[in-house]
């Protein structure tokens, strides 16, 4: 998983050869505008969708100095051109699977329409993608159910990356829990452990994307995932259905004994050796809070 890194440079921005903004600009006497108006005007020019650009730039001459070397429209175009690059780059880092699946053009179009509805309102770009999965689910994209689930996985990975580090219950402590205490015992997940259930094998698909194996869109097949951060490394495993049910009950705050009883009732094939193996693994993985 790529790590987002904000830097202070400008995006490599090359103006198109032909006049980038075929708009008529008034060259009359400059009208005085207050700071707030100046900022509102420039922000609109930089961020508005293409169909509103002509209107936004109509009074460029009132705001931007007739410069040296470049005309005012080209100067504005430098800022306007960098805006989508920033937005696309940011969501590309968080949603590499969605970006790969759609391809660059469709991904950029999706990002820009999304940003129009959900502009960044935070000092950090980490929150930009918060509504992206839901936006995909509401879109008319082909295969949007798969894309939505892939985006949900990717959003969760990005969020777990930044969760606070809290100590894990160590494997020995987990093994030594006396059965008589199980009735009341609650095992809490660390903030860096998350369970997700999908109708498509999105985790497998994303793994292939990450490794540049150029996967094709998969067919429906349920997949239950545990995301965990271990030693600041992001990992995820596919869980068996019964193990997933048990962990989900535990993560939701159910006490250990009733949770185990429930899973054994629902999945009669699950016996003591299986349970022991799971708890051993979960202890090793450090998914519970100390």
């Amino acid at each position: 998983m790529a790590e987002r890194e904000v830097v202070s440079n400008a995006k490599g921005m090359v103006l198109p050869e032909r006049s980038p903004a075929p708009v008529r600009v008034s060259r009359q006497k400059v009208q005085a505008h207050g700071l707030r108006q100046q900022q509102a005007w420039l922000q609109q020019v930089v961020t508005c969708p293409p169909d509103r650009l002509e209107e936004a730039m109509a009074n460029t001459g009132d705001f931007i100095k007739e410069g040296y070397g470049l005309d005012p429209e080209s100067r504005l175009w430098i800022y306007r051109g960098m805006f989508p690059l920033r937005m696309v780059e940011s969501l590309q880092i968080d949603f590499p699977g969605v970006a790969y699946t759609l391809g660059p053009e469709a991904f950029e179009a999706l990002v820009m329409s999304y940003v129009e509805e959900h502009p960044s309102s935070s000092w950090t770009l980490n929150h930009l993608g918060l509504h992206f999965p839901a936006y995909i689910a509401r879109s008319s994209l082909r295969g949007r159910t798969f894309l939505h689930q892939l985006a949900v996985l990717e959003l969760n990975l990005a969020q777990v990356f930044d969760e606070p580090e809290v100590p894990a219950l160590n494997p020995e402590a987990l093994q030594s829990l006396a059965p008589e205490g199980w009735d009341e015992l609650v095992l809490q997940p660390r903030p860096t452990s998350r369970l997700l259930k999908f109708d498509y094998p999105v985790s497998h698909y994303l793994h292939q994307v990450d490794n540049e194996l150029e996967p094709r869109r998969p067919v429906r097949h349920p997949q239950r995932i545990l995301i965990m951060r271990q030693g600041y490394q992001m990992n995820r495993v596919v869980l068996p259905e019964a193990g997933f049910h048990l962990l989900r009950d535990l993560f939701s705050g159910k006490k250990l004994a009733p949770a185990v009883e429930r899973v054994v009732r629902k999945f009669p094939a699950v016996g003591a050796p299986e349970l022991q193996r799971w708890f051993h693994q979960w202890g090793d993985w450090g998914i519970f809070r100390a």
């Binding site: 700071l35 100046q38 900022q39 922000q43 930089v46 940011s90 960044s120 309102s121 000092w123």
Partner: peptide
């Protein structure tokens, strides 16, 4: 400035 009206462009926009 990076934005107004509750919006952040994440660019370093020039001050008048």
């Amino acid at each position: 400035w990076t934005g107004i009206l509750g919006r952040n462009t994440h660019d370093l926009l020039p001050m008048p």
